[in-house]
Lab assay of single mutants.
Amino acid sequence: MDETGKELVLALYDYQEKSPREVTMKKGDILTLLNSTNKDSWKVEVKITVNGKTYERQGFVPAAYVKKL
Rank of each mutant, 00 (worst) to 15 (best):
Q16T: 13
T4A: 12
E3W: 13
D29H: 04
V50Y: 09
T54Q: 10
I48A: 05
A11V: 10
A64F: 09
M1N: 13
P20H: 09
G28V: 02
K27I: 05
P62A: 05
I30Y: 04
V50M: 11
D14Q: 02
M25W: 02
P20V: 09
R57G: 03
I48T: 08
M1L: 12
W42P: 00
L12G: 01
N51V: 03
S36Y: 07
N35M: 07
K68Y: 08
E56G: 11
A64G: 10
Q58E: 09
Y15G: 02
S41V: 14
E3P: 13
M1C: 15
V46W: 06
T49S: 10
I30G: 00
K39N: 10
Y13F: 12
M1E: 13
P62S: 04
E22V: 03
L34H: 02
Y13N: 07
S41P: 01
A63K: 06
P20F: 08
V46R: 08
T24V: 02
K43H: 10
S19K: 05
E56V: 15
K27W: 04
N38S: 10
E3N: 14
L31P: 00
T4C: 15
G5E: 13
G59W: 06
T4Y: 13
M25D: 00
P62T: 04
T49F: 11
K39L: 09
V50N: 07
S41Y: 15
K26N: 09
G52D: 07
I30K: 04
S41W: 15
G5D: 11
D29P: 00
K67V: 14
Q16A: 12
K47Y: 10
I48C: 12
L34S: 01
D40C: 14
Y65V: 09
Y65A: 14
T54C: 12
Y55A: 06
G52F: 04
R57V: 10
Y15F: 06
D2C: 15
T4D: 12
V66T: 01
S19F: 07
A63P: 09
K6R: 14
G28W: 05
E17D: 03
L33I: 03
V44I: 05
L31D: 00
M25T: 02
R21V: 10
K47T: 14
K53R: 12
D2L: 14
D14E: 03
W42D: 00
R57A: 06
S36L: 04
N38L: 09
Y55N: 05
Y65D: 04
L8K: 11
I48P: 00
W42F: 05
V46K: 11
N35A: 07
G59C: 07
T54A: 07
V9G: 09
K53H: 13
E7D: 09
T24P: 07
Y55V: 14
G28D: 04
L31M: 12
V23N: 00
P20R: 08
L33F: 02
L69C: 14
V50H: 09
E56M: 15
G59H: 01
M1D: 13
A63Q: 04
Y15D: 01
W42C: 04
A11C: 12
P20Q: 09
T54W: 08
D29T: 06
L10G: 01
E56C: 15
S36W: 08
T32N: 06
K39S: 11
Y65G: 07
K67P: 04
E7R: 11
L69T: 03
K47L: 12
D14A: 05
N35G: 05
K67Q: 13
I30F: 05
T24S: 15
A63W: 02
M1A: 13
R57H: 06
L69R: 00
R57F: 08
V50I: 14
R57D: 01
R57E: 03
P62E: 04
K39M: 10
L10V: 15
T49A: 07
T37G: 09
R21I: 13
M1T: 13
G5N: 11
P62C: 09
K43Y: 15
I48R: 08
A64W: 11
L34R: 02
K43F: 15
M25P: 01
K39W: 07
D14T: 05
K47V: 12
E22I: 03
W42M: 01
Y65T: 08
D40Q: 09
T32C: 10
E56I: 15
L10Q: 09
E56K: 15
Q16H: 11
N38A: 08
A11S: 05
F60Y: 14
E17P: 15
L12R: 03
R21A: 13
Y65C: 15
T24N: 05
G59A: 03
T37H: 10
K67A: 10
D29F: 08
P20T: 09
N51T: 04
T24C: 06
M25V: 11
S19V: 05
K43T: 06
P62L: 07
L8P: 03
K18R: 12
G59M: 06
Y13G: 05
T54L: 10
L8T: 07
Y55F: 13
L31Q: 01
L12N: 02
V61D: 02
Y15K: 01
L31F: 06
K43V: 13
E45L: 15
M1R: 13
V61H: 01
M1W: 13
V66K: 01
D29E: 09
V9Q: 00
D14Y: 04
D29W: 12
M25R: 01
K27F: 05
D29M: 13
N35V: 07
Y13C: 15
K18Y: 03
S36M: 08
E3R: 13
F60T: 04
S36P: 04
Y15W: 06
L34Q: 02
K68H: 08
R57W: 08
Y15A: 01
K53Y: 12
D14H: 04
E45I: 14
N51P: 02
L33S: 03
E45N: 07
K26F: 09
K6E: 09
L8H: 10
R57K: 12
K26C: 12
S41E: 15
R21E: 15
Y55D: 05
K68M: 11
M25G: 01
A63E: 03
L33K: 01
L31W: 03
E7Y: 11
Q16I: 14
K43R: 10
M25I: 15
T54G: 05
G52R: 02
L34Y: 02
K18W: 03
P20I: 08
K18A: 10
G28A: 02
F60H: 05
V46I: 15
N51F: 06
K6S: 10
D2V: 14
G28E: 02
K67E: 14
K67C: 15
V50F: 08
L34V: 10
K67N: 04
V46Q: 13
N38G: 09
S41G: 05
Y13W: 10
S41T: 12
Y15P: 03
P20K: 09
A63G: 03
M1S: 12
L33R: 01
T32P: 11
Y55I: 14
Y13A: 11
T32F: 09
E56P: 13
I30L: 07
K68W: 07
K43S: 06
T24E: 03
R21N: 15
V44D: 00
K27N: 03
K53V: 15
I30N: 01
L10I: 15
L69I: 14
A11M: 03
E17T: 07
A64M: 11
V9Y: 07
E3K: 14
K53P: 02
Q58T: 11
G28C: 09
K27L: 04
E22R: 03
N51H: 08
R21Y: 15
V9W: 04
D14C: 07
L8F: 15
